[in-house]
Design a protein around this nucleic acid. Structure first.
Length: 216
DNA sequence: CACCAGGCAAGTA
DNA sequence: TACTTGCATGGT
């Protein structure tokens, strides 16, 4: 069972050797991480960028502003990100949450307890486990591991988890077999997503050129 | 043309 | 608890 520990570390080392330090989550502020995390739900990042750019141009990238913005107007601005009516409400929900929780100052949340913060985030409509964990690690520097579709695909493909393993199972697998270090967990998720985008597009089997090759 | 993308909530059995 | 469906744009 602890063979997995070494295999996970080997996976990390191979990916880091290939990609180097990704210094991930392209965002200018903590709040932009939150917005991006919601907008990228089941959506290509290239589409999210257009929506984020529209909000920047309108000088709207602040919790207080978004929380009060008219839904129809917000929806039009984020249209390229898809599911735009649903996501407009989600952005308002999380912005209201942030105003209430810390007056819109995300840095104030950094010293709060991770597990309780996670539970509070999950109680916001539109914030599920992946979105919550993305916010925790990329906006608040918390040592959590983000599981996404690529992570599940790659882990399952390499026999580290079941094909339909639930979110929290994969999450604990890594968190219990990897250092609780924000920087490294941040990097690991980034590496897996970049690997997925580049080498794991196919529905089945291992993919040519992948730095992971066939892990033993 | 079909399929996919850095999910989530709500409904049903 | 474990499926199923709606949500929508833009790229390959």
């Amino acid at each position: 069972m602890t063979g997995k520990k070494r295999r996970i570390k080997r996976m990390y080392d191979l990916l880091e050797g290939y990609f180097g330090d990704l210094g991930w989550w392209p965002a200018r502020t903590g709040f932009e991480v939150v917005v991006g995390a919601v907008l990228t739900q089941n959506t290509a990042w290239s589409n999210v960028e257009k929506a984020i750019e529209a909000l920047r141009r309108g000088k709207l990238m602040e919790p207080r502003v978004i929380s009060r913005l008219e839904s129809a107007r917000l929806a039009e601005l984020i249209r390229p990100a898809g599911y735009y009516r649903v996501k407009a409400e989600r952005l308002k929900e999380v912005s209201r949450f942030l105003m209430e929780e810390c007056g819109g100052k995300l840095w104030k949340l950094k010293k709060k307890d991770t597990d309780r913060l996670r539970a509070r985030l999950l109680s916001v409509k539109g914030i599920g486990p992946e979105t919550a964990d993305s916010i925790l690690v990329y906006a608040l520097d918390k040592p959590v591991f983000v599981v996404d579709a690529y992570t599940k695909r790659i882990f399952s493909r390499h026999g580290l988890a079941g094909e339909k393993a639930p979110y929290d199972e994969v999450r604990s697998l890594v968190e219990e077999n990897f250092p609780a270090d924000t920087r490294v967990l941040n990097q690991f998720h980034a590496l897996l997503v970049e690997t997925g985008k580049r080498f794991c597009k196919k529905k089945k089997g291992l993919c040519g050129g992948c730095p992971l090759g066939v892990l033993s």
